[in-house]
Every structure is written in structure tokens, then in C-alpha cells.
Design a protein around this nucleic acid. Structure first.
Lengths: 205, 205, 205, 205
DNA sequence: CATGAATGAGCATTCATTCAT
DNA sequence: TATGAATGAATGCTCATTCAT
């Protein structure tokens, strides 16, 4: 019989992840030391190792979150939204990405800004870390499939041109979303509405 | 009087940069040590310090190259191309990004793949390195201006909708280019033609 | 009044010692962690500390066992055997050391192989651990005295040369026993009979 | 062209080995930290890593020395001595082991006491370190062969019983030598002459 | 009594950088 | 100039031990 409840354990783990996310967001994966994370979490130097076998596992957990949480609203939207034009779809997705926080599986609010800063670093990491890459690709494909479905439904409803191939069209939409995210987090271009309007303009004339 | 000619010195510097680029592309900025770079360049451990004050300066040099060289062809294209539709512009840009190598200021061929892998890492780096950020923003704005000009010329020629605001429209085009580059280098989606066709389809119906 | 009986307590302690012995034999004193021992014993991480104040105390207990148990049969033999030649004595001792298991004070069977592997490590340990040294010396001297007595009885019976000084002759016999044990456990030379025959040959011509 | 001569490099390496030997002899392999070794050698914490890839490599080097140097005189003796009785052979060997120092390949004097204390620890180490074991077995077999040869020559000269099988007789002699070394270093029994006399007495009546 | 979570000092190792030659 | 040996601070990680429950 454990001395702490599974809930407590889960909460402690979440605190460490949150601390790591703050550190990574602020200083980067490689400029953050394990003692930094422990200090930020207010625990001892050894404590994180009771929840993660290595620093890489923490990075992996956060890389997974970055994709899952950031694109969670987009996926839900793509699955449920009324059939709409491509412009509507992109606009709705960017809108979903513009919240201050998103909610994780346990209902905790996670700052989108932190997640995005970690997500960009994940792109570097997946270049030579197979575990990170696998998680990123899985997240990417999941969102892409969701968007492709939405495009398909749009075509059935006549709101999307039937000449667009949904799978490939979804790739272009993903490109726009990633492109926007990069501009927002790395180049401080945070004007979502303007970007959305411009896309509509280009797409719909 | 110098014991080595400026040309020799410049060539030696370029060798070190090229070695660093190979290492960074293969192993990442932070998994590459200065001795690694020296070894890859076939010089002594101290040699790089005669050309760069620190590892950060090498990263900075390569970050600058990554943006300048990758987007150089796009800029030239935006400046010189016959006025065209937005689809044409994007297609031409992606086409330019699909070469095996680009040529640096001294006429040396530089593998695009290496540059792109460094560029993605630069996005991480600029999050907390002001010097890298400055260089990246400078490159970004330069390309964006070029594209905006091209859009303006397109509007004058009637090939681009006059309702598009060139500066902001250029931002969307940059988003598409970055989104494509990320997919190519991080998610192995290398089908340029398909991507281009899909963009055209979405843009032009 | 205790919640567990002394018997239970003693049994639990013996389990921990046995687990530690297996770990030490397999991985060495210093490559075995306290959690390793607890896991091997199937108890909690804190449990060993209710029976031993420190890891060193466990090592000490096992060091004592190593000498006491390994040489127990030799001592009994030296005390009880019919007077015999030196060759007989050594042969009988090596024979006693060749059993699969020996029996501890509480009647538990303990694998000789494990004890020997711990004994060899004890030789290292006693070089700088006074407590271990004391226990080892005590065991050594006890066995040596037993062998000296046997030699004395042999001399009285005319089976051992009267010119042999028993105390010092016993030291040579101990050297042979230790030398054999080392060869067996460290150099995989397990041919007891051959070794015995050769000793006889050398001793008795 | 190296900045230090190979001689200087070799000397530096030898200093580090000597420092490690002192530390290991005093505190044991596992109680000695790499910083301890560096401090003892009067060099920086990183310096040993320019000569040895890891702590294990230092242990390995010293394990090799322990066997080679300690038994070097014995091997030379076995190879060159006038044919003699087994008692003479053992006596000469123990005599050779009783010097204060032995000389390594480069002519440096190495304290025998230190080597022996390291040798005893090597017996522990070889139980679970294949590299150490290989080196130890190689040294053991080499000496044993030398002793077997000496026995064979003794038999030819009529000084050793022809019924003794040299290879196996050599094993008994090795047992006596190891047994003596253990007593000397671990049990403070340093009286070589007494031990020798007793062996003679037992062997030759 | 027993548990196992938590601690925090300690360790092996790396690496950016310096500087005597 | 160029070399490469040396430095030493910093890092990821382990583990003996404690103690609240």
C-alpha cells in the first residue's frame, strides 16, 4: 500500500512537468539542467528521478504535450465543426490556437505560450531523437487526418472545392498553421485576425 | 605583414563553418562540442578560436547563413520574376528551395539539407538568444519585403487581387514557405510538386 | 510487547542477509545498492534499516559468515579427525570446502559458492575497514589454532614430523587453503582432487 | 607536432597511475573518486581523462601492473634459476616478493606493498569485470607456466620428484604464493623466512 | 512495525576555453 | 600563427539514509 495516493503522485508528477515546461520555455531544453527543474519545482535534486528515468523522458513527455495540447482544440474543431470553407477551417483553428491556456487531460490549465515555445524546440529535437520524432509524427498525422476529414465533409456540403484532394489539402492547411505558430512564437507576429483575414482573402478572393 | 593571406584566412574560416554546419546538421547545436567541430574540420582544438570568439559566434554565423542562403533564391525570384499570381509566386519559391545546393557569397556550394536542419534549430535558438533573433528577424523581414514587392507588382499587372494587402499577404506566403520547410525537414514530406499543386488548387480553385 | 515474535524477526533478518549475500556474490559489495538488497529480499526500501544500522553492518555480518561458515567444517574436522598426516589434513579440509552448501547456526543451508565470492571481497574490504578486519582476523586465527592443534595431535601420533612447529605449520596449511579457494573462485580451477593429490605428492613424495 | 614529447606524456601518465595506485591502496577502488586521484596527482579534475577513458581503465591498468610487477621477479627467477628443489623454488619466489619495490617497464620503482593491496582488490574485481579477469588470468597462467617449466627443469636435474606433474604442481606452488601474499597484506603476517622454513620442513622433512 | 517517498551530497564525466610553447 | 595539453566548472544521475504516515 503506497504512502501517497496515486492522485498525489500524479499531481507531483504534473508539478515537475510544469516546472520543466517553464524552464524549457524560458531557457531551452539544453540550457536547463536537472537541478534547475528541481529547484523550479521546489523539490530536491533527486526527486524528478522518481517520476522520470532521465532528462530525456521529461523532454519526451513535454514534446508529447506540446503537440497534443496545442492541436487538441484544432482536432476537436475539425471533428465537430459545421461544414465550412477552407478559410473558415483555418480561421477556426487559428482562433483555437489563440487562447491563453489549454486544458490537459487532468483538467489543468497549461499556458499556450509555454507549449508553443517547447513545440518549436521539439522541431529541433526530433531531427535526431527518434522517440521525440515518433511522438511528433504521430501528433502531426493525427491532426492532419482530422483536417482531411473536415475537408471531406466540407466537400460533401459543397463548401470546399471538390477538386481539392483532402489528404494533401490538409497538408497545406497544416503548413499554414505551423507557419503561423512559428511567426507568433519566434517572430512576435501575434496578429491572428489579420493573418486569418489575409488567408481568406487569398483563398476566397 | 600577415603570415597568411586574407584569402587563405577566409578559406580556413569557411572550412570551419562548413565543418560546424555538418556537425550541427547531424548532431544538433548542443550535442556538438567545439572539439567535434575542430576534428571535423581537420584542425587543432584551438584553431576555431582564432576565427570565432566562442561557440555562440559560430552558431550565429550559421544561423545567418541558414536564413540568407535558404531564402536567397526566393528573394532573387521575388525581385526579378515576371509578375505572376500568388500561386505562381509560391510555386517558384518552393521550387527554388528544392535545389540540392545553394551558393554562398564566395561561390561555394552549400547543401540545402544541411542549411534547413540548421534553420530549424535556429528557430529554437532565437527564442532566447538575442543575437540569433536579430539575425533571424532581419532575414525574415527582408524576404517578406521581397515577397510584398512581388505581390505589389502582381497587383499592378492584374495577376494578384487588388484587395490583398501586400505586407500582410507576404506574411501568409512566408507562413506557407516555413510550413513547407518544416514538413520537409522534420516530417519527411518532400513532395514539392504535390504541395505546390494543392496550394494552387486552394488559391485559384 | 513486540508485535512480531523474536523468531519472526530473526527469520526476516536472515532473509535480508541471504538477499544481500546473493546480491554481493553476483554484483559485488559496492555495485549493490541498499534498494537492490531490499528488492532482492522482497521488502521495502526502509526495512533493512530495521535490522542493520547501515550497509556496512550488512557487509560485516556477511564477512563474518563468510569466514565462519566456510571454515566451520574445517575447524570441526581439525578438532575431531583421527590423527593424520599433513596431506590427509589438507585433503580433508579441501574436501569439506567442496560441498555445495554449508549450514549456518540456525540450520539454514548457505551456498558455498556465494560465501566464497563474498569471502574474496572481504579480503579487499578488510584492508581499510577495521571492523571487517577484526572479524576476519578472529576467524583466521581460530581456524589456524584448530589446524595447529590437529598438527600437534598428529605429531603425538607420529603422523606428522616432530620438527614442524605447529603454529607456523598451520600458517602454511592456511596458505594452501586460501590459495586453493582463490583459484577456485577467481580462476575457475575447481579440480579439488587434482590439487589434493599434488599436495600429497609434494608433501609426501 | 605534439606540444609535449611522448616521454613527457608517458611520464604524466605514469604520475597519474602512481597517484591512483596510492589512492587505491589506501582507500580501495570504490572509495577512491576520480577527483581524489586528480588531487593526489596534483592535476586538474579533467586531466586523467586525457590519459584514460574512464576510471575502469585506470583500474585495469593497475590490475595489470599488480600481476605483472608482483610476479615479474618470480617469473624471471623461474626462468633462470639453477634447477632446485620445490622448496628452493618457493623460497626464492617469496624472497623476490619481499623486496620493498619492484621496477616497472620504464625503470620506475613501484612499492610492492601498494601493488599487493591493489592485487587483493583485483581478486574482488575480476569476479564481475571481464576485462580485469582476462588480464588476471593471463598473468596467472604466465607465472604458472614459468613455474611448471622450472619444475620440469628440476625434474631433469633430479632435484624434483619425477612423480610430480609439473603443470599441476605449479598450481600448488601458485596457491602457496597467493596464500602467503594474502597473509602478508591482509593479515599482517610478514615473516617470510619463517613461512619459507616451514614450507621446506613440510616438503622436505 | 513497515512503508516508500523524499532528500541531498557525491560521483564520473564532459567540454568551452585558455595559453605555454 | 598554430597547436593541443590543461583547466575546472558544470551536468546528469545515483544511492545511503531518514521519517511522516
Amino acid at each position: 500500500m503506497p504512502r501517497i495516493t496515486p492522485e498525489h503522485r500524479e499531481a507531483r508528477r504534473a508539478e515537475i512537468v510544469a516546472a520543466a515546461r517553464r524552464c524549457f520555455s524560458r531557457d531551452g531544453f539544453h540550457q536547463t539542467s536537472m537541478p534547475d527543474i528541481a529547484t523550479e519545482a521546489g523539490v530536491s535534486a533527486g526527486a524528478p528521478y522518481r517520476y522520470f528515468a532521465s532528462k530525456e523522458e521529461i523532454i519526451l513527455a513535454i514534446a508529447g504535450d506540446a503537440f497534443r495540447l496545442v492541436f487538441g482544440p484544432v482536432e476537436r474543431l475539425a471533428a465537430t465543426t459545421e461544414v465550412a470553407s477552407v478559410g473558415d477551417l483555418v480561421a477556426a483553428a487559428l482562433d483555437a490556437l489563440s487562447a491563453e491556456t489549454v486544458t490537459d487531460a487532468a483538467g489543468r490549465a497549461v499556458p499556450v505560450e509555454e507549449l508553443l515555445r517547447c513545440a518549436v524546440q521539439t522541431w529541433s529535437e526530433l531531427l535526431r531523437n527518434e522517440a521525440v520524432r515518433a511522438r511528433a509524427v504521430e501528433g502531426f498525422e493525427s491532426v492532419r487526418r482530422g483536417i482531411a476529414d473536415a475537408l471531406r465533409r466540407g466537400q460533401e456540403a459543397g463548401a470546399v472545392l471538390s477538386t481539392v484532394e483532402p489528404e494533401r489539402g490538409a497538408r497545406v492547411v497544416m503548413g499554414l498553421l505551423h507557419g503561423f505558430l512559428l511567426q507568433r512564437v519566434a517572430f512576435d507576429l501575434t496578429d491572428t485576425t489579420g493573418f486569418t483575414d489575409d488567408i481568406r482573402m487569398l483563398l476566397e478572393g
